[in-house]
Amino acid sequence: MNSTLEKKHGFSYAKYGYLFSIPFIVAFLIFNLYPTIYTIVLGFTDSKGLGNITFHILKDDPFKNFRAVLNAPTFKTAVKNTFVLWTMNFIPQITLALLLTAWFTSRRNQIRGQGFFKVVFYMPNIITAASVAILFNVLFGYPKGPINDLLVQTGLRDSAFYFMNSPKATRWIVAFIQFWMWYGYTMIILISGVLGINPEIFEAAEIDGATDTQIFFQITLPNLRTILTYTLVTSLIGGLSMYDIPKMLNNGNPNNATLTANMFIYNQAFQGSYLYARAAAASMIMFVIIAFFSAIVFYLMRDRK
């Protein structure tokens, strides 16, 4: 990518490359790297108490906070919930997105109104998750709420059901909101992936008399492998930082059934005794988990030359 002018005149523009990267790098150092190091350091201190910014390094037992977090039953519950909630949403989400992708890209069933369906399916994704969660809390209200009204009126249930008091129901509602907000996004990504596959492969398969189902499983799916893995890992990373929906829907209740890792961190640092050090240690543990999955995305997206 050497500029031709550069070669002719022997003048180097290289310094502008460094110069124009400065704002990004400075912002990174101040707002990302420094807070990261700060968090790591806090994990090895006794930092706690609202508004207290003095702390001491734990010299005798540096890993005390990490041990405390890893041994805390609520942390284990939170990490487990995070993975469980993610799985409960991701399996239906990817299944439906794949089905819709197969339908919308089928050359035999020309589906009309695709533009409209895409716009409507994607819509929940851009709406504030906090608002959506509170809306669902009201919709599933007890004893009076739209969903209970519909259930009783249609005779599906004799009496109203207290959704927010049932661990199972609350979990499914969190997973449903997550699914409902993200299947449209996943579908659009997969469709654009299919459109990137060489159309000649599909034409050849059609001439050979392959059915839609055969084409989907033997051509579309194998060609989507990279995009599917990318979707899986990015969704997992997003799922690991889940906070807004379970927090706003029912604050992790009932019985911590929807308490996630990020909620655990928030509760440690900004409630009760303001245990910043312990929250920092928990953050670092999540950081390592997320960095591991990020490495997979990085591996998938590297420049292939």
Partner: peptide, 9 residues
Amino acid sequence: QVTAIGFYQ
């Protein structure tokens, strides 16, 4: 969010 505690302090 993972470095939020350090950022907050």
